[in-house]
Design a binder for these strands. Structure first.
Lengths: 229, 229
DNA sequence: AGCCAGTATCAGGAATACATAATTATAGCG
DNA sequence: CGCTATAATTATGTATTCCTGATACTGGCT
């Protein structure tokens, strides 16, 4: 039997299941802070609010749980995962390692056009810094990091990084809480760019690791202070 | 054979939900190869086999999906995720980076008793190598790696590593497919131990990275060959 | 004979219904 | 008056049912 499936060609229609959409929705609700840390997640209430049934919601909660955004206690329901300073520090340590790896790989794998794009982003970053536009600076900063991760040409690494970033994102904005750290950060980005352009893997990795470590330490301290209140 | 060891006796009721047990069960089924790569997962059939209903099974599938062990196409069901050589290579690259990080941290954080324990394991590893006991060698090898990860004192890193190892485990055993690589591997473990005992973070990290990279390359090649058949 | 259309069948997705554990309220007792 | 035990209530966990989209089959057509 010749099963030549010519009609198998299926345009990647984004057929999103309900639980997928709910996952995304809840994920942003958590990240945006709409659902605060530790908040109890009342299934029935949320179902009513989102106008869905419990089945897909519960599936979504399982997904978010294994992403580390939600904690589930058997027979006691789900709540938005609380991030202790210790966990947050661990997370940043981990992210630092991943970004270092990415920077190393990026140094050896990046194309010229990618480097050029990165240079442009860096220029814009500096102007945003000069303008004191903290919000857009922060956004662009994240984009630059994401760009470097993507330049590693490792999609597994990329998606994992993205996921960890989400877990950490609730605290990450604190990183640029102080002006002096801000200036330092811009500097580090520049030297990192230099290393990448020079295709110096080791150096790029080192700079990135230090950069993230600094950022992380800042954020951890900010978080500890805030928790102490 | 068809006997389900998913007995849920009320007497031994742990706090584990059904979907959690199912997740674990399916996870081992996949890792053990009982459910081969690409195998379609028929929900009704599995439910009947495990004597449960579809609801918890589907929840478990969502979890396994976000762990990367199962792929889900909307309206087309779930199947055991297939690991292409490319993905496998990415995975190993990633694991390499994580283990390097762990080795670096371990070098600075390990206690003397941990180092002693590790040295004992190394001794045993060498004797297993001499005896040609491949199976136990492989087991101990994994334990050593896990031990070093644990010595990093970063539980987030540890659990992530464990998860990635699962995804890769179906191909990992191929790593020691050749004798010469085997001997090399034992050597690398020894020098790694030396570096850890000397608390030389950088060196420990480098050795670990190289070690995993070698192992990975071997495994990737083996996988490619096998896929080509 | 091969191909396409229409239909039948089936499996997965979502909603509802049911069971059970946890929490809270209440009543009885000390 | 307070404490404990037990009942009521609520929310979670699981099963069942319904619905919808996908695949397979059949029959008519070129």
């Amino acid at each position: 039997m010749t099963t030549s499936n010519l009609t198998r060609k299926k345009t990647s229609m984004k057929r999103r299941s309900l639980h997928e959409e709910i996952s995304d929705h809840l994920r942003s609700m958590i990240i945006e802070g709409e659902l605060p840390e530790g908040e109890r997640i009342d299934e029935s209430a949320l179902c009513e609010q989102l106008e869905i049934s419990r089945t897909p919601l519960r599936e979504a909660l399982k997904v978010l749980h294994s992403e580390g955004l939600v904690s589930i206690e058997p027979n006691r329901g789900a709540r938005v995962a609380v991030l202790t300073p210790e966990e947050f520090a661990e997370l940043f340590e981990l992210i630092g390692g991943l970004e270092r790896m990415a920077a190393e790989l990026a140094a050896s794998r990046a194309t010229d056009s990618e480097l050029k794009k990165l240079a442009q982003m860096q220029t814009r970053l500096e102007s945003l810094y000069s303008a004191g536009d903290r919000h857009n600076y922060f956004e662009l900063n994240q984009d630059i990091h994401r760009m470097i991760i993507a330049m590693s040409r490792n999609s597994t690494l990329t998606s994992l990084h993205e996921q960890l970033l989400m877990r950490a994102s609730r605290g990450r904005y604190m990183a640029i809480g102080t002006e002096d750290r801000w200036e330092e950060s811009v500097q580090e980005h520049q030297t990192l760019l230099d290393a990448l352009q020079a295709k110096d893997s080791v150096k790029a990795g080192e700079i990135m690791l230090e950069h993230v470590r600094h950022t992380g330490d800042c954020a951890v301290n900010a978080l500890k202070l805030r928790k102490a209140v």
